[in-house]
Amino acid sequence: MYFTYIQISKFDIVQRLVLYKTGDVRSFYRYNSSWINIWSVPKDLCFVYDICGAYGACNRNNLQFCSCLEGFKPKDKHAWFLQDWWSSGCLRSSPLYCSPINSTTDGFLQKNDISLAKEKAVSYSQYPTLPTCRSACLENCSCKAFDLTNSTPPICRMWFGDLFNVRVASNSQPVFLRMAASELQQSISNGGSNQGRVLSISLPVSTAFILVLAFLVIIFLLRRHGMLGKGGDMEGHELLSASLRTFTYKELRIATNNFRDKLGKGAFGSVFKGSLPDDTLVAVKKLRGL
């Protein structure tokens, strides 16, 4: 794909076009000693083809706008955590059995908050009901999702192969995602349902207190054994600095989903729940001031 443009201004304007790795193109012009962004396409990054990769859903309202569908996990957790590259997509947490003889090996999770690329769907008029449409999709191992249109008569639409260009959309038509029976059962046992209800996990404020207490105990033990010096003991300070990893503000903001889930607050700031790329739960304290 390509595009051209013609500069019709009589003034000598220096311009440049930048193609970003997220897939959007931006135009800049030189003003004094600065570059001014005058336009970009597309306006919505979720319209960039394959921006979240296979089984990744795009939500323009989120800080990290790519997320894996339920039952999937990022193929490259580190890249997703740093918001560096999403097109690697997601992998299934549990493989499909694809056994049409035993219908209990695979199932379908109903999602009411996503939309699939309609141009990739294959339509069938001979399966005008949900049971017939479901059975037809289940019998084909390549069928990964289906839905039933609201038209008269209803049309059964199926998506074959990996799912790309999934978007988060409110009040969308129900879509049924194919999942392994174990993943489907786990979703239900964790409080979900085959309606695709979003799971919400909350931790008590005592979790933050326990983490802080554990940190203080470690400091006490290190000092007791002479591994961590007091005051101006630079040897102990270097040992502690070498054993701890520093995080950038961007990493902490992503880990806490923009400081969304507050565990508690004190005189110096608030504590938020976070999750690192390796799924380690952490408590992040955001200070009120410097």
Results as ranks from 00 to 15, higher is better:
residue 65 F to T: 06
residue 273 K to N: 06
residue 22 T to E: 12
residue 257 N to W: 03
residue 139 E to Y: 13
residue 118 K to Y: 14
residue 75 K to Y: 11
residue 36 I to C: 10
residue 223 R to N: 02
residue 109 L to Y: 03
residue 12 D to G: 08
residue 202 S to N: 11
residue 38 I to E: 05
residue 69 L to V: 08
residue 36 I to E: 11
residue 249 Y to H: 14
residue 34 S to A: 09
residue 272 F to V: 01
residue 69 L to N: 02
residue 208 A to W: 07
residue 11 F to S: 15
residue 91 L to C: 08
residue 28 F to C: 02
residue 64 Q to H: 06
residue 245 R to C: 05
residue 132 T to K: 08
residue 196 G to N: 08
residue 12 D to F: 05
residue 85 W to I: 12
residue 192 G to M: 04
residue 62 N to S: 14
residue 82 L to E: 11
residue 185 Q to M: 10
residue 82 L to P: 00
residue 108 F to R: 07
residue 283 A to H: 03
residue 81 F to G: 02
residue 1 M to N: 14
residue 42 P to Y: 02
residue 64 Q to W: 04
residue 229 G to S: 00
residue 237 H to W: 07
residue 92 R to P: 12
residue 109 L to M: 06
residue 83 Q to I: 13
residue 41 V to M: 10
residue 267 A to Q: 10
residue 268 F to R: 02
residue 76 D to K: 12
residue 135 S to V: 03
residue 260 R to N: 14
residue 106 D to M: 02
residue 175 V to P: 02
residue 87 S to A: 12
residue 199 L to Q: 09
residue 110 Q to Y: 06
residue 104 T to V: 11
residue 172 S to R: 07
residue 104 T to F: 07
residue 172 S to I: 01
residue 282 V to G: 00
residue 280 T to P: 01
residue 31 Y to C: 09
residue 99 S to R: 15
residue 62 N to L: 12
residue 44 D to L: 09
residue 235 E to M: 04
residue 249 Y to I: 13
residue 186 Q to T: 14
residue 278 D to K: 07
residue 97 Y to I: 09
residue 93 S to A: 09
residue 226 G to L: 02
residue 24 D to S: 12
residue 220 F to I: 03
residue 155 I to S: 03
residue 191 G to S: 04
residue 51 I to D: 03
residue 151 S to V: 03
residue 180 A to M: 01
residue 186 Q to E: 15
residue 242 A to L: 02
residue 20 Y to G: 13
residue 137 C to Q: 05
residue 160 F to R: 04
residue 234 M to A: 08
